[in-house]
Design a protein around this nucleic acid. Structure first.
Lengths: 270, 270
DNA sequence: TGACTCGTTCCGATTTCCGGAATACTGTTC
DNA sequence: GAACAGTATTCCGGAAATCGGAACGAGTCA
């Protein structure tokens, strides 16, 4: 072997190999087959195949099976988004949330996906009066909360399973904890484009929520509105829904630019 | 053999463990010590320590040594930036590049770091006439091109070594391929804040380039200007350099908005 | 000083990874 | 339809990495 030059290269751990492959498919997203990856990485086809399968299973890469065109999976984005201290997010989302809260007179908030959990990132109560307020940082149950459903329903099967593996408490008589129903509910959410919560967390409270879709189709955030059941689900529901969907679109626009700038800037040199 | 039911016990491969740790430190950046990570991940201290060291060595995480506060490293950002279609980048950079090209009358372009290679992301020729045009997507050699030097000179030792491990062809009589000289050149680049290429790629061509520095020091892009040697390196060089540095600052500003919000939010109590 | 916690190193048992050889699955050509 | 090229995928013995309990230095508080 001509191992003169490769000799000085540092230890080639399995982790390093995974990352090298990931960088290769990241450089040419969606246009590399197994043979290409193997050639570019100087690895035997067999080894490249095994490593790629590992990357796909970990959701770091996607494609592979039959489609034979690998690209970067959703997990990287999820990790980087989870790092965000919510300062910049707040600055971008606050105006939209404030307008939504003012228009509806209800509490509105933005949630984000952290691992397989859904946390409140930014919260905004309407000016009018103290009605309700959603504390930033609290966790939204994926099977009951509108914002929880609105995010989890759009995730990969692996992440959905992970989310549903957690304890799913029956909070009220309306709460459904059986997986079959929850999956049907997720299908309804995807079908309608928004999620609801009708007395499933608190008997008198309802909520509606919409996913915030990135340009690449990933859903890492959702925007929600909550209040007394009659006020949310009454005559004004169509109006609330229209405003919510409009807010979702506006946020998608801002966040898709803001997150990319944030990703460029995050991480510390030393 | 028939392990259909054991299917639900997710395989806990080493890669999966690495990622779980990474997600944990991503969720609480800069405030977790080893013991915390071990507790949150349900792993023995020893194992957590070993895995974290692996993450740090791979530049997926940073911190660790003594500082006892882990956070997400620069590598994830690099990978995600490599995958990003350059649409948003183009929208942000095009006006600045156009102004620079118009002012100088030369071809100007923005390059980005992809793995350990430097590729042209956005290119802009001056209106005046056909002079030269740099094709987006082509690779810039790290030892000869001004834009290559301007990015690689600011990277970590590991990435510099990786970049210089590639073949460094002697393109003209002026090209230097010996590592000692290249590292001195990188030091000069860091010292002056810009890079040059004087007939090192084509005998009659010269180029100048400046890194686009994020406010935290990370360099993922550089902006360059190229043209005939006499026109670039002649009397107008000071003017070109000033315009280039100004363009670099303008681009850095656009890309760093996220960081400033982040820092404002982080400078909190405790 | 002693008790405590922290990060770190050591090392045998265990597990995973490695990659050549062989196999299965396409779609194309004659 | 048979032969063929080009894929992706499985098999499996040898090699190498990982695992984590035990033990070690360094710092801290009482």
């Amino acid at each position: 072997m001509e191992a003169q030059l490769t000799d000085q290269t540092e230890a080639d751990s399995p982790l390093e190999r995974y990352l090298r492959l990931l960088e290769i498919i990241a450089a040419f997203p969606g246009r590399l087959a197994l043979a290409d990856v193997a050639a570019l990485s100087d690895l035997p086809k067999t080894t490249a195949h095994r490593l790629l399968k590992g990357l796909v299973k970990a959701e770091l890469a996607s494609g592979g099976q039959g489609g034979r065109a690998y690209s970067v999976g959703p997990r990287l984005s999820r990790i980087l988004h989870a790092t965000a201290e919510d300062g910049w997010l707040e600055a971008l989302a606050r105006p939209t949330l404030a307008a939504l809260a003012e228009d509806s007179g209800e509490a509105c908030y933005l949630t984000k996906l952290v691992g397989s959990r859904v946390l409140v990132a930014v919260s905004q109560a309407p000016e009018v009066r103290w009605r309700s307020y959603v504390q930033p940082g609290i966790e939204m149950p994926p099977h009951a909360a509108a914002t929880g459903k609105a995010i989890i329903a759009y995730q990969s099967e692996a992440l959905i399973r992970q989310a549903l593996a957690a304890e799913l408490p029956k909070l009220t008589v309306n709460t459904r904890s059986d997986e079959a129903w929850i999956r049907e509910e997720f299908a309804r959410v995807r079908d309608r484009g928004y999620a609801t919560c009708v007395g499933e967390i608190d008997e008198g409270l309802a909520a509606i929520a919409a996913p915030v879709c990135q340009s690449d189709g990933l859903v890492l955030y959702s925007v929600g509105m909550t209040g007394p059941l009659q006020r949310i689900m009454g005559d004004k529901l169509p109006h609330h829904l229209a405003a919510l969907m409009e807010a979702s679109r506006a946020l998608a626009n801002k966040l898709s630019i803001g997150t990319k700038m944030y990703q460029a800037a995050v991480s510390a040199p030393e």
